[in-house]
Amino acid sequence: MKLCARGVRIDFWNERIKRNLRVLDCIDLDVREGELLAIVGPSGCGKSTFLGAVDGLVKTGAGDIRVDGVSVDKPGADRAMVFQQDSLFPWRTVMRNISYGLELQGRMARAEIRDRAASLVELVGLKGFGEHYPHELSGGMRQRVNIARALATDPKLLLLDEPFAALDAQTREFMQVELMKILARAKKTALFITHQIDEAVFLADRVAVFSARPARIKAIVDVDLPGQRTLESKLQPRFRDLQERIWRLIEEEAERTGLMTSTVGA
């Protein structure tokens, strides 16, 4: 197992109601070596919080998170996060954004860092844009840099928090295919949060459905699509079945907590 989470509980102090709010309630989750596991669930249920805990940014109240058998208590080089908002440093060029993690580690020589950043620029298909600043790039390009920055430190586990949420539908589909290629080339294990069920089914080997807050794992759905996945896969009946099933699971949660009353198809 790459990631092993057992009984993870997280409470946040809520200033408005003046008491602790349980966000995660006993999360058990395993991520296998080399797999891409997608997390879906109602908005505000605690998905980002869980990812933050795996990254070591958020302290757990109870339970244990292990990456390669080692307990997580602070951020480490074996994990890297691609954040929900594209949070590239506006004062750094593409190259220097990508090399940020390596610069902090201070283990590699400058020339070595440059070479690695340059190869990542190529990997994410941004050749020729290395010396551009983020504000000179499109949204899709910025998210590529965001992903490259996380890949630069060669993490064993990649954490992606809705990386394509801010993109338009067309760019998003394109980036889904790109991410699949990039991850295959880089041979990474990844944990991926998304609100798009089709994105989850398309990219993931398994999809974990979080319940409404306080979140537990409601179900884990195996994505057993035959053959190579392409955008056409989204048209297969099997793909639609899976999408439908996951949608119903989320809908149940939303209805249970009164977030949604009407029934909408997938």
Binding site: P75, F83, S87, R92
Partner: peptide, 29 residues
């Protein structure tokens, strides 16, 4: 400083000093 930048720096394991030189200083220019 944008809180997102602090999160990114921390996620990459930045120390307090590194957070200061790589995020606080440039963003205040």
């Amino acid at each position: 400083i944008d809180r997102d930048f602090i999160k990114v720096a921390r996620s990459f394991g930045a120390s307090d000093g590194q957070l200061f030189t790589t995020v606080a200083l440039p963003s205040s220019v």
